[in-house]
């Protein structure tokens, strides 16, 4: 309970820090929103072109695909808000900046993520939310609040586990030093959320909701929101999500435990 309260206090500081950054970097935030809007538009145009001469793509209508696109955006924006530096953990290890975190009575990775919350990126959700409103009003997609919230929770599971994957790959720096290539590898993995997983064979889809979290980023949320069935029942998906979280928390904890023993620090 005490630890929980302590971390809650640290998160409050993280939120405060984030609001400070927003004040400093207003122009940058504005351009970020513009960039995100552009990315969303390109995605929409891409699917519009694909659907020019077809009504269904792999069983999806264009409206459903648009909804999928919105969740893809949610995934990227949530990652930017909550875990923007998870993939950069290796830099702390490589440069020895981890020392400043290790001399505090908290988990370094927890402190790193909290102090780097980027709540200012919440404004990047504006284009996706507007797009969903368009889908509801113009394309007449029926959304109920509960399904949408559950879909967002699945989406957040993907974001959280993705950060664990990034931190796990970052621990390679304990053994191999500079590993920017692995950083890029985990960035590339995130591309997997941009395509509906129904295009994959069955076993890969299972893989994406058990061993990897990317099924939960946009495909599962789109199915849940539309009240369609994806692979198994809702409970199966929930168990799969819990399993993925436990699996990656365990993997990260083990890698960290062994890695930190190899830590050499750097500089005087």
């Amino acid at each position: 309970m005490r630890t929980f309260r302590k971390y809650l206090e640290i998160i409050k500081i993280g939120v405060f820090l984030s609001s400070r950054r927003l004040l400093y970097f207003r122009v940058s935030t504005f351009f970020d929103i513009l960039g995100n809007t552009l990315f969303l538009i390109i995605n929409i145009v891409f699917w519009k072109i694909i659907y020019t001469n077809i009504q269904f793509f792999n069983g999806w209508t264009i409206e459903q695909m648009y909804l999928f696109t919105a969740f893809t955006e949610f995934f990227h924006v949530f990652t930017k808000i909550f875990f923007p530096v998870s993939g950069k953990l290796w830099k702390l290890i490589y440069t020895g900046k981890l020392d400043s975190y290790l001399i505090k009575p908290v988990e370094p990775f927890m402190l790193l993520n909290t102090l780097n919350l980027r709540l200012e990126n919440i404004f990047n959700l504006i284009p996706s939310v507007l797009w969903i409103l368009v889908l509801i009003n113009y394309y007449k997609i029926k959304l109920d609040v509960l399904s949408f919230i559950i879909a967002l929770l699945f989406n957040f599971v993907a974001v959280f586990v993705y950060s664990l994957i990034q931190m796990s790959t970052s621990t390679a720096s304990f053994w191999f030093g500079k590993i920017s290539a692995i950083d890029e590898l985990s960035d590339s993995l995130a591309m997997l959320v941009n395509y509906p997983h129904t295009i994959f064979p069955f076993f890969i889809r299972i893989f994406m909701i058990t061993l990897l979290p990317f099924g939960y980023a946009s495909t599962v949320p789109a199915f849940v929101t539309l009240k369609l069935k994806y692979i198994g029942t809702f409970s199966a998906l929930a168990i799969g999500a819990a399993f993925t979280i436990i699996l990656w928390v365990t993997i990260f904890k083990i890698l960290w435990k062994f890695g930190i023993k190899k830590y050499n620090s750097y500089g005087g």
Binding site: R2, K6, E9, I10, K12, I13, F16, L17, R20, K104, P105, V106, L111, L115
Partner: peptide, 12 residues
């Protein structure tokens, strides 16, 4: 002072 607040939380 805000940094101090962080330390207040970290060291309880």
């Amino acid at each position: 002072y805000d940094c101090l607040k962080l330390y207040k939380a970290v060291y309880e």
